[in-house]
């Protein structure tokens, strides 16, 4: 094709790097060589500038803030996901996170490509500086909150692996494990190795390379701590925009409703963390529900439920 916009070409290059990186991270799980993981991380770091460039060129081609339809929005969220992953990896040396982060980033970009719209004018309803404020907050919050679910899933996996190790080894591998790894450094593996044989054993062994359950839970909470206020802010700014554009700050439009659902899910999470019997496992499960709700909000509402926010194909 001769008339492929530059932004789409750059987008393709970024996706190619991310796919290669994902292969690397999966290989890291199998071979557990640090160098493999570092190579994969380098591939992500190489793809990232192309991702940035794809967004910037798209903004120039379209002549507006590049969050005006689902192609641009998905690209934006995947950008937040990749950036957040890079920051965590470089600051805390976490590598296994590359698997869910890259799967999600690639999936988001695949959806973006499937719903590709050539750069063009915005629908009249989006002609507003509120687009920049509201939609950017929502995209950022979505990208951040998914990490709380990733860490929660790792937490659950680590919990299971610790339980497995405890059951098979009869407390021999207790040190640095089940009780929460009191002396474990922040993002290094909190214990593990030497767990009993069999498929379950090898899986448990791999999972025990993860940081301690307590650390993972802390990271999960940390991302709610960052993402929840941004989400709250984004929803509020959406209300202000709704009042400005339509004359009502809240109208139970499907998109509004779903953003409220996501907000309530994470509000439940925050309360669950200080409620007896709800901490840890149940709280972790709540963030997983939150992940599902975020993506239902992103796609289901835009594509299958008509409402005032149905700008997906615009």
């Amino acid at each position: 094709m001769t008339d492929t916009p530059l932004s789409l070409t750059l987008f393709g290059v970024a996706v190619a790097f991310y796919v290669a990186a994902l292969v690397g991270f999966l290989a890291y799980i199998s071979f557990r060589r640090r160098r493999v993981a570092d190579t994969a991380l380098a591939l992500v770091a190489l793809g990232w500038p192309f991702h940035v460039a794809a967004i910037l060129t798209r903004a120039f081609e379209a002549g507006h803030w590049p969050l005006g339809n689902i192609y641009e929005y998905s690209t934006g969220i995947s950008f937040v996901v990749v950036t957040t992953f890079l920051v965590i990896s470089l600051r805390a040396g976490q590598r296994l996170l590359g698997v869910p982060a890259m799967i999600l980033a690639i999936a988001l970009m695949a959806v973006a490509y499937m719903l590709y719209v050539p750069p063009g004018n915005l629908v009249p309803a989006l002609h507003s500086y509120w687009l920049t404020i509201h939609v950017t907050s929502m995209a950022t919050a979505s990208g951040l909150l998914v990490f709380s679910s990733f860490f929660a899933m790792f937490f659950l996996a680590r919990r299971w692996a610790d339980g497995y190790a405890l059951a098979t080894a009869g407390g021999a591998s207790r040190v640095g494990g089940v009780s929460g790894g009191g002396g474990a450094a922040v993002m290094t593996s909190g214990g593990g190795g030497g767990v009993g044989g069999g498929a379950g054993g090898s899986l448990a062994g791999a999972l025990r390379k993860l940081p301690s359950a307590r650390t993972l839970d802390g990271w999960s909470f940390r991302f709610v701590m960052i993402g929840f206020p941004v989400w709250t802010f984004g929803v509020m700014m959406g209300a202000v925009w709704g009042e400005h554009a339509w004359g009502r700050y809240w109208g139970w439009d499907p998109k509004e409703t779903f953003s409220f659902i996501v907000w309530v899910v994470f509000a439940i999470y925050l309360h669950a963390r200080v409620t007896y019997g709800w901490r840890e496992t149940r709280a972790a499960l709540i963030t997983v529900v939150g992940l599902v709700a975020i993506f239902a909000d992103l796609y289901a509402v835009n594509l299958w439920i008509a409402g005032l926010h149905s700008y997906a194909r615009a």
């Binding site: 659902i261 309530v264 309360h271 200080v274 409620t275 439920i305």
Partner: peptide, 21 residues
Amino acid sequence: RMRTAIYFLMGILGIVLIGTF
């Protein structure tokens, strides 16, 4: 109690979910 509030929130969540679909 906060536990009860969590159940209230979940009930609201369920209704809101119906309202979306």
